[in-house]
């Protein structure tokens, strides 16, 4: 019966390359030489990996929350792609942290069993996105910034970080382009979409300055980490181009202060972060002995 054959043929079809990055392995750095380069402080390197990894993990979480809520099915697919890429970057970076600090802890330890104050992501990544304009504005800002950082990170003295950056650059170029095209459509489209995009940028902008503040860890990791202050001009140029094509202006709004001298990179977050982590970590923490 052809029916049987068809089923068996399908069930046997192995073609794993077609599946999203990150679904086919347990250890993202399996087979990679993860020795910390001479002269580099392992704890600092781990902290830096957590900064970049947490940005990706937390933004991915916000993108996951869009699932089944996108304005059109084609965008459902695109938003999930960005979320998957970010998740893939997070997995590599969190796994790298566990090798760099010598604890051999896996990616899941960092994602599920750290407290809020131990997360190192910038606050913009954790911000809730109330509508599609806020989603797109957030993705444009974060991916433009991250792409500029990753382009430089390809020259990192840590070969693992350099390789992660190389892979990430291709992905981020695509993400930035997706967001930029949407900002142009929304800005130029209708009165409603223009107004919503203006509001979204106003909402996002107070957390932009934080992205370019050099952290002590980045300062100490000279040659390994990228100083984000260096990418501000590039960021401004790209945003100016996109906003101009979208008939929009860069917002004139005040930057958000930190708390007791600390911001996202220091583990001081917004009130939204606790809820995000409660959701992310609930099942894993209810079953700390379990394997999945």
């Amino acid at each position: 019966m052809a029916f049987d054959n068809a089923y068996e043929a399908l069930a046997d079809a192995h073609d794993d390359a077609r599946w999203a990055f990150g679904t086919g392995f347990e250890d993202p750095l399996s087979g990679v030489d993860t020795t910390v380069p001479a002269g580099v402080d392992g704890d600092d390197l781990a902290q830096y990996c957590l900064m970049l990894g947490d940005d990706a993990l937390v933004l991915s979480h916000r993108l996951q929350q869009w699932c089944t809520r996108a304005p059109e099915l084609e965008d459902e697919v695109a938003i999930a792609n960005i979320g998957l890429d970010m998740l893939g970057q997070a997995r590599l970076l969190l796994a790298r942290a566990g090798k760099a600090d010598g604890t051999e802890r896996g990616e899941d330890h960092y994602a599920y069993f750290r407290g809020e104050h131990e997360f190192r992501n910038v606050r913009l990544a954790e911000r809730e996105q109330a509508d599609f304009a806020q989603l797109i504005a957030t993705v444009l800002v974060l991916t433009t910034w991250r792409l500029a950082v990753f382009q430089r990170l390809r020259e990192s003295a840590d070969p693992v970080l350099a390789a992660i950056a190389q892979k990430g650059v291709n992905e981020l170029t695509y993400h930035r382009d997706y967001a930029a095209q949407w900002v142009v459509r929304l800005g130029d489209g209708t009165e409603t979409s223009h107004a919503r995009t203006v509001a979204a940028l106003d909402d996002v902008w107070p957390l932009v300055a934080e992205l370019f503040e050099t952290h002590d860890v980045e300062r100490r990791l000279h040659g390994v980490a990228v100083d984000p202050a260096e990418v501000r001009d590039e960021f401004d140029d790209v945003l100016a181009q996109v906003l101009s094509a979208a008939t929009l202006e860069p917002p004139q709004v005040r930057a958000k202060a930190g708390v007791a001298g600390g911001k996202g990179r220091d583990g001081r977050h917004t009130e939204a972060m606790g809820y995000l982590l409660a959701e992310l970590q609930s099942v894993a923490r209810a079953h700390p002995e379990a394997t999945w």
């Binding site: 599946w19 999203a20 990055f21 990150g22 679904t23 392995f25 347990e26 993990l57 979480h61 996951q64 929350q65 699932c67 089944t68 099915l73 459902e76 697919v77 999930a80 792609n81 979320g83 998957l84 998740l87 893939g88 997070a90 997995r91 969190l94 990616e107 899941d108 994602a111 599920y112 959701e279 992310l280 609930s282 099942v283 894993a284 079953h287 379990a290 999945w292």
Partner: peptide, 30 residues
């Protein structure tokens, strides 16, 4: 059909399972 499984993406208890689930729900949109 994306909804019942999509319900667990943000809470998936390992990053690998999360990636698998997100990719699967994305496939359903496709």
């Amino acid at each position: 059909g994306m909804q019942p499984e999509g319900n667990w993406i943000t809470r998936a208890p390992s990053l690998r399972r999360k990636a698998i689930l997100l990719a699967k729900v994305q496939d359903e949109a496709g």
